[in-house]
Amino acid sequence: MKKMSKKKCFVNGASFTIKSCGIQLEDLITTTVGKKKNELSLAVAVNNELVQKSEWKSKVIKEGDVIEIVQPFFGG
């Protein structure tokens, strides 16, 4: 069986291994955040562009993509 090669993207500044065919953004968020993802008021950007929640399932993350997963935090 042919071994599938692995590639990397970057999630919140850390490197994240993905299959060469990519990964659905929704799955990447679940892996990073866990099942509570819908309770956390998350927002996500890919390559400095907002990706709305309604597009998480259709958006495919590829090698080299830079993903930012943010949430509300303490602030002044």
Partner: peptide, 27 residues
Amino acid sequence: TVSMRRFNQEGEKFFLKGIKSKYTFLP
């Protein structure tokens, strides 16, 4: 006022601690 920061456990605790519904948020 709140900031927008990368997801982490501390942020999760902050946001789920019951202050969400009472105040108007100004990010």
